[in-house]
């Protein structure tokens, strides 16, 4: 049952992925239209930031007298985008059902081995994406999020699948519920922060070469927020992730003390949790360091999430250590 629900969820994610991709394609072509329409006006020569503020996703403040820079280019309502979001919600519900069924079958929380963790982790990634959309429009990341989730779920169900099995004694603890769940949540936040940082870098590159010139490269970027906005958003998401990661690390230490008799022992997984923590601490400090704000700190966020993925895949599978709960 759980597997069927999961496969259905994956199918719907795949369709949502296509819808998001169509939306991105439409963004590219809409830029051509807008550019043509605006070319007769004087504003067009001033570059990318001036035209058609107030369209899609604009967040210009009402009474601000500051010039609205960096507002995304006008971009009408997109059917594909709305279909994408709706399908993502449907897929997420199926995914949730799969996860709950797995938990019921096992009679415990569904994140005790690598397959289950991948399933719950991706569920949380999508949840973070959907919840964030309630506050800020980040639907343009839909392709990235559904794509990432599809890859991870595919990997998990093909390579990591294990039958339901009871908890080994070492995992029989309330900390399994807390520690792993919080870890998965911060992974979800880091994933979204990663996506934003990548778009931020692309956007920044476009902004620095394309001022005054014709739109080059990925034209769809013109419909997205400015790199400053993306950076601020990525930062906000990453700091929440960082706080949860700090908690993960501490909860892990408390649990390690109970289960292994020491709160910190430089086990490979502990080492990588520490490395990730330090990278994101560096990211936060980089934003306050001259010359590091912007692109360089975005690279740190990208490296940070890469380390998270490395920690989940390579460290779990190939490194020796006490966190040997992949079930493989």
């Amino acid at each position: 049952m759980s597997v069927i629900a999961l496969y259905s969820a994956m199918a719907v994610y795949a369709i949502a992925f296509i819808a998001y991709a169509i939306d991105l394609a439409k963004r590219s072509s809409s830029i051509d239209e807008v550019a043509e329409g605006a070319s007769s006006t004087a504003a067009a020569s001033a570059g990318l930031n001036v035209t058609a503020a107030g369209g899609y996703g604009s967040t210009a403040t009402i009474t601000s007298s500051a010039p609205v820079t960096g507002a995304p280019r006008g971009y009408g309502r997109s059917a594909a985008l709305r279909v994408g979001v709706a399908l993502t919600v449907v897929a997420w519900l199926l995914h949730l059902a799969a996860d709950i069924l797995r938990g019921l079958a096992a009679g415990r929380v569904p994140w005790a081995n690598m397959y289950e963790f991948a399933m719950t982790g991706t569920l949380i990634i999508v949840a973070v994406f959907l919840v964030t959309n309630l506050f800020v429009d980040v639907r343009f990341l839909g392709t990235f999020v559904t794509g990432l989730v599809l890859i991870l779920l595919g990997l998990a169900s093909v390579n990591f699948y294990v039958a339901v099995s009871p908890l080994p004694p070492a995992l029989q603890s309330i900390w399994l519920v807390i520690h792993v769940f919080v870890a998965a949540t911060s992974v979800g936040l880091f994933a979204l922060g990663f996506g934003l940082s990548v778009v931020q870098l692309l956007q920044f590159r476009r902004e620095s070469i394309a001022v005054g010139a014709k739109a080059t490269g990925l034209r769809l970027l013109a419909t997205l927020p400015s790199s400053d906005k993306l950076e601020a958003l990525a930062y906000r998401i990453n700091i929440i992730g960082f706080i949860l990661w700090t908690f993960t690390l501490m909860a892990g230490a408390i649990w390690a003390e109970k289960a292994w008799g020491r709160y910190w022992g430089w086990d490979t997984k502990e080492v990588w949790t520490f490395i990730i923590w330090v990278i994101y601490a560096g990211y936060i400090h980089a934003r306050a360091t001259r010359g590091w704000r912007g692109s360089r700190s975005a690279w740190l966020a990208i490296i940070g999430f890469s380390a998270v993925l490395f920690n989940f895949t390579v460290v779990n599978l190939f490194f020796k250590g006490l966190h040997a709960y992949s079930g493989l």
């Binding site: 022992g265 430089w266 086990d267 080492v271 330090v278 560096g282 001259r290 740190l300 490194f319 020796k320």
Partner: peptide, 27 residues
Amino acid sequence: MRTALFLLLLLAVAAVPGSLVPQRSSD
């Protein structure tokens, strides 16, 4: 701040070998 940031990133890099090679303390 820049030195602190540099040391912080260096610390992350320096922690890596300990996960590649077995450690006397843990293994």
